[in-house]
């Protein structure tokens, strides 16, 4: 197990009816790495996350998890091997309370689904859900229905639900988008602290360079479906190509160069970032 990296992506390509959304992506991540993915809208970040977690099937290339080929598997099988994700737009069960959300997630994760045959309100599941809510500091909202939560709390719930299955590799798609400035660092502090403790490999998509600088060990910069830079943050954020295509010369924290309309459409969820 130790020899092969937690996640190894080789020559990964994806095209949508002629439009290239990912081109020869090569990435390696070791256990416990925390990697930031940056890039303008439509650069192919979400496509990358979607391919690794099985939502999109790559056109060509290979994805390996600890040496096991997981190219093009179903999302639920990705979860089973230990590759989980959160979403740019929080995907939670809107009509249920925070606790119910987590109970369902826990019941599915436990004993390969055997817990589904009994009540999810069993004492140990409830205790575990409470522990999760403590860790992610959402216990104040335990009995609030998800649709009434603020964006920040919903994001935390979304991430907590991705972590329930004890992933080895976790991909977070813009964990701080749509969240107020005051909440951003709080969320990342909570999440990174909880994950570092478990030695999870984290890849997260982020537009805020301050957050990238503060939390990551390495930066992957995307531009037009390609990785144009793979380096520690101090180095990457000085890279002329990264400044040109990702950050912008005026060092705006949220660069918005003219989005490539075609690849933005192919990205789907990217368009409203």
């Amino acid at each position: 197990m130790t020899a092969s990296p937690a996640l190894k992506v080789t020559d990964l390509c994806k095209s949508f009816s002629g439009i290239t959304a990912a081109n020869n992506i090569n990435v390696e991540a070791a256990d416990g790495d925390i990697i930031g993915i940056i890039g303008a809208n439509g650069a192919g970040k979400t496509v990358f996350v979607n391919m690794i977690t099985g939502y999109l099937k790559p056109t060509s290339g290979k994805i390996e998890f600890h040496g096991q080929d997981i190219t093009g598997i179903e999302p639920r099988d990705a979860t089973h091997v230990g590759v989980c994700r959160s979403f740019q737009v929080s995907q939670v069960f809107m009509t249920m309370t925070v606790r119910e959300n987590l109970l369902i997630a826990l019941a599915i994760a436990k004993d390969e689904g055997k817990a589904m045959l009994s009540s999810p309100r069993s004492p140990d599941l409830v205790a575990e859900a409470d522990r999760m809510m403590q860790a992610y500091k959402i216990h104040d909202h335990a009995d609030a229905v998800a649709s009434t939560l603020s964006q920040g709390v919903r994001k935390l719930l979304d991430i907590a639900m991705a972590v329930v299955a004890n992933p080895k590799v976790l991909l977070l798609d813009e964990p701080t988008s749509g969240v107020s400035v005051e909440e951003k660092f709080a969320i990342m502090d909570i999440v990174i602290a909880a994950l570092k403790e478990k030695g999870v490999t984290v890849l997260f998509v982020e537009h805020d360079m301050e957050i990238v600088e503060r939390y990551v060990d390495r930066v992957l910069a995307f531009y037009q479906g390609e990785v144009i830079c793979d380096a520690p943050p101090a180095e990457a954020l000085q890279d002329p190509k990264v400044i040109e295509y990702v950050i912008g010369h005026d060092h705006a924290p949220n660069p918005t160069p003219p989005a490539d309309a075609a690849s933005a459409a192919a990205n789907g969820t990217e368009s409203n970032a």
Partner: peptide
Amino acid sequence: LKTGLGALTTAIRDNELRVEYLGYS
């Protein structure tokens, strides 16, 4: 309806994508 499977009923109505990503078909 009281079991996890039954609770999943509402979950599926709310968000199929999440159910898949939680690992259930």
